[in-house]
Nucleic acid binder design. Structure first.
Length: 459
DNA sequence: TATTCTGACTCAGAAACATGTAC
DNA sequence: GGTACATGTTTCTGAGTCAGAAT
């Protein structure tokens, strides 16, 4: 591989884009200016209204200032980033408004980079890399009430990067004038390059795409032996759990934490002792997959059309998502798009009524004239009516699906917990094209399952 | 021995980006 | 046939999991 693709260097602002302190324009040192742009870009994000974010940013920013700047810039409230912010907003819009050919050119450049840095050779095969770019510098966006939000995420330099590649391969060249932190040849790990980020001091990796053979469903493929044991395991565990619960509670007051002695490490250790490869995650996967299979069996109607079958599939998938607690916030545009859909349904209903009228008229016409032409007209109207009925049904199914899916995220279970062979088998059995349930990326990731599962596959 | 830390890897949702559809 | 908006897809990166090492 060629090592990571580094984030582009900072381009200083044009002279007419100014930063103001206490109402007066102030020219910043390049390094100081760069960090200011990180904040300026986020001005209309909720983050910049949060005190922790502001404080962390200001603290880290001041650390990078020259001593003169630091002497002058003492309060964030007196900093005016608005002109800088506007500059970036305008720049974004200008990019969107670019003529087609220009956009095409940019795309080709990106593809070239992808082609050059986005692949590696693993055991003689060309494999796609998942993330081949270093994370660009910016302000840390912790989730929830993260105490470090707003801190400066520093630029990653070649000197920070450890390269991992095989002994007999050509070592990637560092960018000119730089060198790698280290080059090693460790074939016991899967990463190609790594660096330590400065916020949490954790290691970031460059690794392969989920479709690569290093990533493909090891869990599912070693699973059968484990999962055969889970059913009887559940049956006996029931009794034992109840007894243990009683035991736990005997020595506790009502407010005490019931499971103070049970953390994942202890649990996994115990499960590992029972059987090699058994962890808490295996149970999650097992439960998800067996639920999907059961629900599909219960909900699918062989006589339904494809749209209705897909509704059944999504319902089964939803049952799994609920089980795994994959909730999401109702999308911001939900109400509006639901209204649009409803409007479409109403329009279709009108069309339907219209088509029914026309058919009636055509029939009357046929009765009166009894000629070939009006017979053909009746047939044509019948066809039209059927088509509209089917379209209406499809729209109704869509609306139901959308409503039921409002607060549920299907992606995670579909991508990470469900054995894809269950879905593949279902598609084959009920004549549903696989593209209806897996998009391109998903089909790549699950290529092994699409090849191997037939319609009789049972989990 | 118990607890915390570290490294490797997977999961998860938001944002960016691309594509489709209605006007 | 072009544009604006909606929807679908991909990228990005913070968070979580798990095993083994360090304290």
């Amino acid at each position: 591989h060629k090592g990571p693709y580094f984030a582009p260097l900072y381009e200083p602002l044009p002279d007419d884009v100014k930063f103001y302190y206490d109402g007066k324009p102030m020219k910043l040192n390049v390094a100081t200016e760069e960090i200011a742009t990180f904040y300026a870009k986020m001005l209309d994000h909720e983050y910049t209204t949060k005190e922790i974010f502001q404080n962390n940013f200001f603290h880290d920013w001041r650390k990078e200032m020259t001593s003169e700047e630091r002497k002058k810039i003492k309060h964030l409230e007196k900093c005016d980033f608005k002109e800088m912010h506007k500059y970036f907003v305008d720049k974004n819009e200008a990019r969107k408004a670019l003529p087609k050919e220009e956009k095409q050119k940019l795309k080709e450049e990106a593809d070239k980079i992808q082609e050059e840095y986005g692949y590696c050779i693993l055991d003689g095969h060309r494999e796609k890399i998942g993330n081949f770019k270093t994370e660009p510098p910016g302000l840390f966006r912790g989730r929830g009430d993260h105490p470090k939000m707003g801190m400066l995420k520093k630029r990653i330099m070649p000197e920070d990067v450890i390269i991992n590649c095989s002994k007999d391969s050509k070592t990637p060249e560092p960018p000119s004038g730089h060198k790698w932190k280290e080059v090693r040849c460790d074939n016991t790990v899967t990463w190609l390059a790594s660096w330590t980020e400065n916020i949490q001091n954790s290691i970031k990796y460059i690794m392969l795409n989920p479709s690569s053979k290093l990533k493909v469903g090891v869990l599912f493929l070693v699973r059968p032996s484990v999962c055969h044991l889970i059913d009887p395991f559940y049956a006996t565990v029931h009794v034992r759990v109840f007894k243990n619960l009683q035991l736990f509670m005997e020595n506790k007051d009502p407010g005490d934490d019931l499971f103070d002695r049970l953390n994942t490490t202890v649990l996994n250790k115990h499960l590992q002792d029972l059987m090699d490869g058994l962890t808490a995650k295996v149970f999650r996967t097992y439960n998800a997959s067996i639920t999907l299979q059961e629900q599909l069996k219960a909900l699918t109607n062989a006589e339904d059309n494809v749209a209705a079958k897909l509704l059944s599939y999504n319902r089964a998938n939803r049952a799994v998502a609920i089980l795994c607690n994959h909730q999401r916030a109702t999308p911001k545009s939900f109400e509006k798009s639901m209204q649009n859909l409803q409007a479409k349904i109403d329009a279709k209903k009108e069309q339907l009524a219209e088509a029914q009228m026309e058919l009636k008229r055509a029939k009357a016409d046929l009765k009166a004239k009894k000629d070939v032409k009006s017979k053909a007209a009746v047939e044509k109207k019948k066809k039209l009516l059927e088509k509209i009925q089917e379209q209406l049904l499809k729209l109704n199914v869509q609306a139901t699906d959308k409503e039921e899916n409002k607060q549920i995220a299907l992606g995670t279970s579909k991508l990470n917990y469900l054995d894809p062979r269950i879905s593949v088998a279902w598609c084959k059995k009920f004549g549903v094209p696989i593209e209806k349930i897996y998009n391109k990326t998903q089909r790549e990731k699950f290529a092994w399952a699409i090849d191997m599962a037939d319609e009789d596959f049972e989990f």
